[in-house]
Design a protein around this nucleic acid. Structure first.
Lengths: 323, 323
DNA sequence: TTGTAAGCGTTATCAT
DNA sequence: ATGATAACGCTTACAA
């Protein structure tokens, strides 16, 4: 029979159905009405030829859009190890998916300049520079930054870091704590804001060190601090995962939480493998994701999009107690 | 002074540099040599006009490729809650990124038929049907299936489920266990294989129930089984996360692991928040990801790609002991 | 090494 | 409701 024939195109379908190219196009796009009988003929011809719908690549060029939104999250395995990041991602994906947009993961190092992106979400808390930034700006790709640097031209989604951190600090102060230490993130806007909030109440809070939101990382970080700790009675962390690591390491070293040591987190995610409820600052992760995605949609549509600042709430759990 | 001028194209650059369109193209693609002086002129013109490189959409259409590979992982937050999935994803992303390909997340429900995908990875263990499958086949999109159904036309990446499961079962048998129960995954190829391996040794192993790889889920699943358990002395799980959940729930109910109950997992991932090392079946997650990505590259290149079956290894930890 | 020209497969505009 | 036609911006034979 026939050799390796090329895939049928819309033109083939149109010809086979005896209609014009534009009518065939409208049959599939539905952008303008097409009579029922014509549609029948076109679809029949398509089925017969094995035409699987308009070529996305061609449509993309014509429309100037790819339907793909990039999301920069740094190293995948570390970024997504934190449930907070996943909750956010879920919300983003939900909104973008409903709009027919796909979500493309951008590692920090890769060269994504050649990929067709309609917009990019920058969600790498703890980084202040980004190789791809200049390129994206040059290409006029809308950029939505989550808790990152307030780069020119980008839309900015953030939460009330300082307010939440200060509320937590006040809670500890009210419990009688005076000697407080903190585990930090890498130098970044959220970290600076949160530390400022902490120092609003405890100006001399000691910094134990910085690490990612990773149980093992925080355990090794605080390991010796718990031995030769000075008079520290509470440790404030920048994520619930960090806080869980501190709790576990404290117990390993014979300290009871919260009796001997109060521990606080940030985020408000579930930690079912911990047998206590963390005192933490709950951030609206789903709202943050939705707001981010909505900002992306707005920017893609060319609308004026304003920055978003979301509130947080202190949640007192079982990991903090009187000093 | 000019109004909202449209973005410059390669043709503008070529004209401004006084060279032909093809020469300008070659300057950027490097696909054929261009004299140094010519390149200079082109790049200078590009810089002057603010040309940010060839339009990816146009190149995609011309080349018939988008540079985007889809990966179907089901619900994002649940899929990535398991560190095993992340390790795999990392390896995939590493190889594809090096090849200049982007990775697009495909939720199960969304309609991704309109997205330009060069290939798709199906990595949803525990699902046997997929709405998008027929469409991808119709569009001739290469499909690489990881531990999923052996769909016609797809390349198949898998591990030695049954062998590993049987080795684990023999380990338990050698420890004197005779009354074994198991926590399963949703009905699927891996689940069937692993259960077969278990029953090679314990034909009458009891099924406690199925759940995802989620600590909270498994805890509630096994909660009452640990109370009114018959003579069960060991529980075999289908992931280390499941196993961790069983350990925690067992302890919560006053059972010591491994003295009163042996618990085994699958995967071989780190569980730093558990104070014992799980006995488990270690699968080569990075290899699996690399093999998957390599298969994708091969399929995109139109090569003949063979299926891959990777070995696993029993690792005896502290969560199993004599019955 | 550089230029000419032919598409890639659509969608959108404008008539009819 | 349908048809003719012009882009969309680039890459790549092929020619010179």
């Amino acid at each position: 029979m026939s050799g390796p024939t090329r895939a049928p195109t819309l033109a083939d379908v149109a010809a086979s159905a005896g209609v014009s190219l534009s009518t065939a196009s409208l049959t599939f796009s539905g952008n303008k009405p097409v009579s029922a009988t014509t549609r029948e003929r076109v679809l029949a011809a398509a089925a017969e030829l094995g035409y699987s719908g308009p070529n996305p690549l061609a449509r993309n060029l014509r429309q100037g859009r790819s339907g793909v939104v990039g999301i920069a999250v740094g190293q995948l395995s570390t970024a997504f190890r934190d449930p907070a990041a996943l909750a956010m991602l879920d919300a983003v994906s939900e909104v973008l998916g409903a709009a027919g947009l796909g979500l493309l993961l951008m590692s920090d190092d890769d060269d994504h300049a050649r990929l067709p992106l309609d917009a990019v979400i920058y969600d790498i808390c703890g980084r202040e520079t980004w190789a791809a930034y200049a390129d994206l700006v040059a290409r006029d790709v809308p950029l939505v930054v989550v808790e990152g640097p307030a780069w020119p031209g980008s839309t900015y989604i953030d939460i009330e870091h300082r307010v939440g951190s200060a509320a937590l600090a006040e809670h500890l102060h009210a419990l009688g704590h005076r000697d407080v230490a903190t585990v930090t993130l890498a130098a970044s806007h959220p970290q600076r804001e949160r530390e400022a909030g902490l120092r609003d109440v405890f100006p001399h809070a000691r910094v134990l060190g910085a690490c990612e939101s990773d149980v093992a990382a925080v355990q090794s970080l605080v390991a010796h601090h718990l031995d030769d700790r000075g008079p520290v009675t509470a440790i404030v962390c920048q994520s619930d995962v960090q806080a869980a690591g501190v709790v576990l390491e404290a117990r390993r070293r014979g300290l009871r939480v919260p009796e001997d040591l109060s521990v606080a987190g940030f985020d408000g995610v579930a930690t079912p493998w911990l047998d206590l409820e963390l005192t933490t600052v709950v951030q609206p992760l789903a709202d943050k994701g939705h707001a981010t995605a909505e900002a992306v949609l707005g920017r893609i549509a060319g609308a004026d999009v304003s920055d978003v600042l979301l509130p947080v709430a202190l949640r007192v759990g079982d990991s903090t107690a009187p000093a």
